[in-house]
Design a protein around this nucleic acid. Sequence first.
DNA 1: AACCATTGGCGTCATTCACG
DNA 2: CGTGAATGACGCCAATGGTT
Length: 138
Amino acid sequence: MLLIATSYGAPHIESRVREHRLELYARHMAVTGDETESAATGDISAYQIHNPAPSLPQGVMMSGSPNSMHCPQQHTEEATRKREVRLLKNRDAAKECRRRKREYVRCLENRLSVLEVQNKKLLEELQYLKDIYSVKSS
DNA sequence: AACCATTGGCGTCATTCACG
DNA sequence: CGTGAATGACGCCAATGGTT
């Protein structure tokens, strides 16, 4: 079972998204009549529905020795399992990556507002000094 | 209320990069 | 050089706010 609780984002949205995917998937199954292991668990993404998995999962090499798998059935099961693990890892990596990016942007925005205040103060000070100078020199 | 544009978050794929 | 992690790009969806 690959369904995991997501760590980021609003939980109420997460669950609704999941429900929506399940609905889409149910519709997909109704049309195709296809049924896989992930179908049984409901572990399916919207993208997978719109973009059926290629015949060869990403990153799975053709060069696997024929002896490593006893039969084609086992080979495809192993390939499917590897693909699911890879997708799960990449899903989590993407979430973490986005979280860091949001944090980075927040930091930049904070720094911007600090610098804006600083700049304003310096401009005011500059004006003040200019005024003093002009009064003295006149 | 219906419609539309914008925004934010997600999953996936493709690519890059660092490491063993 | 193969492999896994990180990330940009893309498309999708839901929520939200503005407009008619």
